[in-house]
Design a protein around this nucleic acid. Structure first.
Lengths: 164, 164
DNA sequence: TCTAATTAAGTAACTGGTTACGCAAATGTA
DNA sequence: TACATTTGCGTAACCAGTTACTTAATTAGA
């Protein structure tokens, strides 16, 4: 393959993560489009959550997925537009929007699930020769969660300066 | 941590890749901003390439990084605006833009390199407990390159249908 | 040699995320 | 009980990528 970013080792990793993530994202969009499915990447997560929990708020979903809340607002607005999600204002706390799946959503679920199952199989295939990947990826996430890139880099900088 | 996407195993991986990639990206931007550095994430790659090769075109860079060419145009335009890159039209092929680093860029390089070295150290730290990560990540990239997510998923779908 | 096909690069419109900000409702407190 | 703080969520502006399209220059071929 002879990929420059790979040759860069540690320096190229961030860009490679984005490149792979984007590649999966665009390929998924293309798949749904080519099959005439009226859904988008990530929606499966919302479907799963709302099936499991019946009703959730924007904030609950954003905390569960660890996405920013505006990201969830955008996804939900699209799903509402497509008639897969409906909202009502909570009667006890009028700030809250209660989200539920529509009847249309439940009707289409079996079809969608075929695609999601096949997609899940694809990820399993991709990971087949990388038996430690999920475990080691989790370790990286945990480290970044515990202290982020900036914090770590500033600390490294300070250490470098001290040792000069 | 109890992360929903992690619990989802294969289903959550794509979103986790994006989440981590974004987290690194925004953290890097914040680092440069807080330190008053007039550069952006990815620019180190262009600096390295233009140092090694003296002069390159947009297309050469986009092929080397495996980015789309408009992505490179955008990065280069910003670097030109900041005075780190200059362009001239190739005399033999007037379609081509020859990119080179400016004097200002070379002057600032030693400073930037301190940050890039510290950042490289951060990635090394993050990967410390994941000794197979780079190798296994490469395997996934190669698989996706060989046959993308959509192609694989359509194939899985067909297989599922046949076995019913 | 003229024309068709290819190539380089710029632009526009879009994507799924982000941060920053604002408003209204709920909660805590002096 | 009134006022300050917090919370939920919507909107705006931005970001780094993408695809699709355009234009101009070069190359290939009848």
């Amino acid at each position: 393959m002879n990929d420059f970013l790979t040759e860069m080792e540690y320096v190229g990793l961030t860009s490679r993560l984005k490149r792979l993530s984007d590649s999966l994202l665009y390929s998924t969009k293309e798949l749904y489009k080519s099959e005439g499915l009226d859904i988008e990447p990530n929606w499966n997560l919302i479907f799963i959550l709302l099936q499991e929990n019946e009703a959730m708020t924007i904030t609950e979903i954003s905390e569960t997925l660890q996405f920013s809340h505006p990201a969830v607002v955008k996804i939900i607005n699209k799903m509402k537009k497509n008639g897969h999600v409906e909202t009502r204002t909570d009667t006890e706390d009028k700030r809250k929007q209660i989200l539920t799946l529509t009847e249309k959503a439940y009707k289409q679920l079996p079809l969608f699930e075929k695609y999601w199952t096949a997609g899940r199989q694809t990820v399993m295939d991709l990971l087949e020769d990388s038996p430690n990947f999920l475990e080691e990826f989790l370790k990286i996430e945990e480290k970044v969660n515990q202290s982020d890139y900036m914090e770590r880099t500033l600390k490294n900088l300070k250490n470098d300066e001290l040792s000069n």
